[in-house]
Simulated assay, not measured.
Amino acid sequence: MTKQIKLTEIVPDHLYGKRLDQVLAEMFPDYSRSRIKEWILADWVNINGRLCNVPREKLLGGENIEINAELPDDERFEAEPIDLNIVYEDDHILVINKPAGLVVHPGAGNHDGTLLNALLHHCPGISEVPRAGIIHRLDKDTTGLMVVAKTIPAQTHLVEMMQAREITREYEAIAHGAMTAGGMVDEPIGRHPTKRTHMAVTSSGKPAVTHYRVMEKFRNHTRLRLRLETGRTHQIRVHMTYINYPLVGDPVYAGRPRPPRKADESLLVVLRAFKRQALHAAMLRLAHPITGELLEWHAPVPDDMVGLTQALREDTAIHGMDNQ
């Protein structure tokens, strides 16, 4: 299903000589340039009653613009009363602390019970926003902070901010291996050449940059703080695996468990029981897409990662750092 919208406006004289796509982007800032270009190419833009589908056509000013366009409507998905841990909410955005196990968007094998279904119930008007305002995702079993747009202007601006790398996201993670120092991974990520549900570092992938620093060292594990410059699918998980420090519990990229030598049974039990990637979106910082106010949120590390950290500390206290 789609939602029909109609926009009419007179081209201001100061836009004389500019291209149609540039003029419309300036006249209708609530919509992204890519969306406006799609409208032009889809024959949805009229100039003085004349259909125009050439984005490069120059305008003189004073023309009457009429746009009859369609926007995706997410009402085809069911609204469901699913509890949300809402950290912040106003008329334009909301920030949630996502639990492990919650899928963000319906897809193959997950047609309901998702964050999108929960958002449609919590804020019915969000059905008018593409993808119900979801501008970035966390994997099903990654916990932590996500920002969601409640209106089209907020969604447009947040997407532009994300593309311009103006939204700061920091994560905590626990990785296999004793890392000596922090650093940066700058390697492109794309689909795995043979395992189509996996991602991988590949020369044909999209640019991806992950910064990481050591927060705490254990005998054969490291607690990390990571910051993303880009937001590729599985980015942290793939990059940490690429440098041979996969995340504890990662069912896709970590391989078999790697306990330290002579680990006590108590630690082995905790490691065996940790069935998800040890990854948590701990901090989110951005300028409000409408007011411009700088905002920052923090989400405490979930109990399962706290328990894992404590077990690793106790193991290190017993055996010291030298018995790798």
Rank of each mutant, 00 (worst) to 15 (best):
I318R: 13
L268C: 07
P260K: 06
G125H: 02
E26S: 11
V201H: 05
P81I: 07
D141M: 04
A287R: 13
D30P: 06
H234N: 05
Q277L: 05
T142I: 10
V148D: 06
N53P: 10
S34D: 15
H319M: 08
N48H: 08
T194I: 07
E63G: 05
G183Y: 12
A178H: 13
K37M: 12
L268S: 08
L119E: 01
G62A: 07
R56S: 15
V248K: 01
P153Q: 10
T194Y: 03
M1T: 15
V301L: 15
R213T: 15
R237N: 05
A208T: 06
V185L: 03
L116P: 03
K206I: 01
P193R: 03
R256M: 12
K275A: 14
P259Q: 07
Y253D: 08
N97F: 04
L271Q: 02
N117G: 02
M321A: 05
T210H: 08
N323H: 14
V185S: 01
Q235W: 09
V270C: 04
A25W: 10
D315N: 07
A154G: 08
L41E: 13
L24T: 06
E26L: 13
E38R: 08
D73R: 09
V306K: 09
T151N: 02
A278Q: 08
V104E: 03
H298Q: 11
K98S: 01
S266W: 12
I93Q: 02
P81T: 08
R219P: 04
L312G: 01
R213Q: 15
I152G: 06
A25L: 08
L271I: 07
E9N: 10
G107F: 12
K275T: 14
D264I: 10
R232V: 03
A173E: 07
G144L: 05
L59S: 04
P259I: 03
D90E: 03
V301I: 15
L158E: 01
E75Q: 09
M1C: 14
R131F: 09
A25S: 15
R219D: 01
P246F: 00
H192S: 06
E80F: 07
E296L: 11
T151Q: 03
M179I: 06
L7W: 01
L138V: 00
I243P: 01
Y31D: 06
D264V: 12
A154I: 04
V104W: 05
I96Q: 05
G307S: 09
C52D: 09
V159T: 11
L120T: 04
E66F: 07
L115P: 02
L294F: 13
V148W: 09
G249Y: 04
H234S: 02
T143K: 04
R131N: 02
M283C: 10
A317I: 12
K18Q: 12
G249F: 07
V306E: 15
I86Y: 09
I67L: 05
D43F: 11
D73Q: 11
K6I: 11
H105V: 10
